[in-house]
Design a protein around this nucleic acid. Structure first.
Lengths: 247, 247
DNA sequence: ATCAGGGCTTTGTCGAACAATTTCGTACAA
DNA sequence: TTGTACGAAATTGTTCGACAAAGCCCTGAT
C-alpha cells in the first residue's frame, strides 16, 4: 500500500495576510470602523515586506472589507448596498443573462416587496412616493426621462419594505432593466401613461395599508411591462446589456 | 462671481490600471479566457513599476475578473456563481440581516422557481431529485444531516428552473438559512417527516409538469418552515450567523 | 487661546535584486 | 522521425531600499 499525498497548497503571503485579516473582520474582532495599523506596522506583525502587505490590502479593499476614510486612515468597512449590488450586476452582465430571466425574477420580487411596503407606515417615504408620482405626471407631457422616475419609484418601494435581503436582490435586476424600460417608453406612445396609472394604484394601496391590493397591482404592472416589450417587438431572450451610467 | 472648482480626483496608478483592464473586459475586447501579458509587459504598456502592476492585478483578481489558470498564466475570467453568491452572503452577514428578512425573500423566490422548474423537463435533474428524496427518507430514520439534503433539494430545483438571476439571488439566502434549518430539525421531532412530505409533493408536481401545484406546494413548504421556527421557539428577528463550512 | 509653520509620518511609486518554479528549446537516444 | 531528458530562459512571489507628496501633529509666535 502506498501513502497518499495531497497537493501542497502554496498560498502566497499576500493572500494569507488577506485571509488572516478577513477572518478577524468576520468574527467581529475587528469591528466596523476600526482603524488598521499602518503598512509599516503590518509588516512587523506579519513579518513580510511592505509590497506584500500592500498587495494584501488591495485584496481586502476590493472585497470592500476595508476602505480608506481619509488618505491615510484605513478602516474596517462593510460592503455597502451599492457595492454589493454593483458586483451582482456585473456578474449578471458577464453571464449574459436574458431579459426574460430578469423579468421572471422581478415579477417574483416586486409584488412581494409592494406587499411588505403596504404593511409599514413611513410618512416620509409616502411623501417621496407622492412627489415621484407628481414628477412622473409632469415629465409625461414632455416625454422626458420617464424611465429614471420609474426606477426611482420602485427603489422607493424597495426602501419602504425595509427588507435588505429583498432590496439587495431587487436593485441590480431593476437597474439592469433600465435600457429596456427606455426602449419600451420610447417606442410605445401610451406606455408612460399606463405606467403612471399603475404606479398611482400601487401608491394608493400602500398609502391605505392594503397589502393585497399593493401586491396585485404591482403584479399587473410588471406583467404589463412584459406585454409592452412584446408590443414594442423587443426580443426578451437577448442578453441584457450595460448602459452608459454604470455597469 | 467666483469660478467653481470640483475636487481633483487623485486616482492611484494601480487603480487606474485596474480600471483600464476592467473596461476592456466589460466591453468584450478582452474575452473570457484571454491570456494577459506578463507583469513585465504590463509595466511597459502602462509605464509603471511592477509593484504597481501587481497591486492592480490583485484588485482584478479579487473582483474575479482575472484568475490564475496555472502558476504563470493569468487569464480573463467571469465571476462564477459561487463567487458572486459568496460575496452576496458575506454582505448579508455583515449587515446582520434577520431570519425573517431572509425568509420573506425566500418565500417570494422559491415558489416562483418551483413553478418554472415544472415547466421544464430535464430527465437528469428529475432523476437527481428522486435520488435526493430517497436519501432523505433514508437519513430520516437516522436523524442524520437531513438539512444538507434539504439544501440540496432546493438547489436542484434552482438549477432546474434554469434562471440564473433567480438562482443567484436564491442560493445565498438558502445557504444562510442552514443553521436555522438545523435548529428546527433538531428541536422538532416531526419536522423531518413533514419536510419529506412537502418535498415529495413538490417533486410530483414538477415531474408531472404542473406549475400551479409546484408553486402552491413550495409556498406551503416555506410557510411551514416559518411555523416550525415559531414552534421551535426560534427568534426570527435575530440576525443570521455564519456557519462553519462557509461564511 | 488661536493660528501659522515646520517637522514627522504615511502612502504611492520606483528601481533592483533573488529564489523557486514553470516553460521552452535543444540536443540526444531510440 | 519521434520521443525524451536535460538545461536555459522566463515569470512569479518576495525582499530591500529609496524618494516625493500629502497629511498630521506639535510647537512657537501672536
Amino acid at each position: 500500500m502506498s501513502i497518499q499525498f495531497s497537493k501542497i497548497a502554496r498560498t502566497p503571503a499576500y493572500r494569507a495576510l488577506a485571509s488572516a485579516i478577513t477572518e478577524q473582520i468576520l468574527d467581529g474582532r475587528l469591528p466596523e470602523g476600526a482603524q488598521l495599523p499602518t503598512e509599516a506596522q503590518l509588516c512587523e506583525v506579519f513579518g513580510v515586506n511592505r509590497s506584500t502587505v500592500r498587495e494584501g490590502i488591495r485584496v481586502l479593499e476590493e472585497a470592500h472589507l476595508l476602505r480608506r476614510e481619509s488618505a491615510k486612515k484605513l478602516v474596517v468597512s462593510r460592503p455597502s448596498t451599492e457595492q454589493t449590488s454593483h458586483q451582482f450586476k456585473r456578474a449578471l452582465l458577464l453571464h449574459e443573462v436574458s431579459c426574460s430571466e430578469l423579468w421572471e425574477a422581478l415579477i417574483a420580487l416586486e409584488p412581494a416587496m409592494a406587499r411588505h411596503a403596504a404593511q409599514r407606515h413611513d410618512e416620509q417615504l409616502i411623501a417621496q412616493l407622492r412627489d415621484n408620482l407628481a414628477r412622473t405626471a409632469e415629465t409625461l407631457s414632455r416625454e422626458d426621462r420617464t424611465e429614471d422616475l420609474d426606477i426611482e419609484f420602485h427603489a422607493l418601494i424597495g426602501q419602504m419594505c425595509g427588507n435588505r435581503a429583498l432590496m439587495l436582490a431587487r436593485e441590480p435586476l431593476s437597474s439592469l432593466f433600465y435600457p429596456t424600460f427606455q426602449a419600451v417608453l420610447n417606442r410605445l406612445p401610451g406606455a408612460g401613461l399606463r405606467m403612471l396609472e399603475a404606479h398611482t394604484e400601487i401608491f394608493e394601496a400602500i398609502r391605505e395599508g392594503d397589502p393585497e391590493a399593493a401586491q396585485l397591482w404591482m403584479h399587473r404592472h410588471i406583467r404589463d411591462f412584459k406585454r409592452g416589450c412584446e408590443m414594442a417587438k423587443l426580443d426578451m431572450n437577448r442578453p441584457i446589456a450595460a448602459w452608459e451610467n454604470g455597469a
